[in-house]
Write a protein that binds this DNA or RNA. Structure first.
Ligand SMILES: [Mn+2]
Ligand SMILES: [Mn+2]
Ligand SMILES: [Zn+2]
Ligand SMILES: [Zn+2]
Lengths: 144, 144
DNA sequence: AGTATAATTGAAAATGAATTTCAATTTCAA
DNA sequence: TTGAAATTGAAATTCATTTTCAATTATACT
């Protein structure tokens, strides 16, 4: 987590933003959770230990966390914006259970390669992609 | 388009909903466009020829269009809900240009197969998936 | 240290797409 | 024909996201 925080500090300084105690507390809270978290969820967590920090500051810091490369958007199929750790985390895709909402992070190098090829075939220069497979996890498959 | 409209009529009747002139006009307008369309965009189109039809009815009919299997959600990376034709259209994924916003519909059977395998490997029962590759189309790649 | 300047904060307000409410109207089936 | 059910569209509501603004705080420069 130290590395991430150093990165955060550095990036802020680069763009002449200040490293405030609020920002640090928020980024620490974000780094501690391993979920795909919404702004509201993070706010509720931060508030437990730091009741003086407002929602707006969490919201704005979450933007900074994205901009500094610590987080990226993750879509779990509900309609709220969720963020997941980016720095130090390899790219991966998701299996998302339609019943219980749990998700699994997966990676398949063969698919990645074919995606690249597919794009090239269409003279398209791929930058990033999102692949989400929706269905039923083992537990929910059994229960049905 | 006749086939789609017959399906729509049939599905409505199945669930004891009425085939009204508004619904028909809206579904026809939807079927005529080949874009990934938002509710608002469709409303504006419908309004041109049928100024008496309200936004709410378009919104509700769009839900029905989805439920009857004529449309599915399509995410182009902006934050608005878009719908694309489903019935009679094969599954496909998207290459989405980050610069001009245009998109290309693509399909790769090898990727589809590997996706299925990947899910199975994790004891996951896949139902549907979404794969969007973001990057730059040929035109926008050259311009940069 | 003192002061000017710029950034930060959090409450409140604004935004905007998605959704619901409701009273009036229309359709259907008996 | 008549009562029940469905439909409609305007208006209101919801809810996440984003902006505004006045007060506070940090920083840079004498
Ligand atoms: Mn993830
Ligand atoms: Mn499409
Ligand atoms: Zn599950
Ligand atoms: Zn382009």
């Amino acid at each position: 987590m130290e590395k991430e925080i150093e990165l955060f500090r550095g990036e802020l300084k680069k763009i002449h933003l200040r490293v405030t105690s609020q920002r640090l507390k928020i980024v620490e809270a974000f780094l501690k959770t391993e979920k795909h978290i919404t702004c509201d969820e993070l706010y509720l967590i931060v508030r437990r230990n730091h009741p003086d920090i407002g929602y707006t500051t969490v919201y704005r810091t979450l933007k900074l966390i994205q901009e500094t490369g610590l987080a990226r958007e993750a879509d779990l199929g509900d309609k709220v914006l969720r963020l997941e750790h980016e720095f130090g985390h390899k790219h991966h895709d998701h299996l998302i259970c339609l019943k219980c909402g749990r998700f699994f992070e997966v990676f398949d190098p063969d698919i990645e390669l074919l995606q690249e090829k597919l794009a090239r075939k269409h003279k398209f220069n791929p930058i990033r992609h999102k692949m989400d497979i929706f269905g039923y996890c083992q537990k929910c498959s059994l229960k049905q």
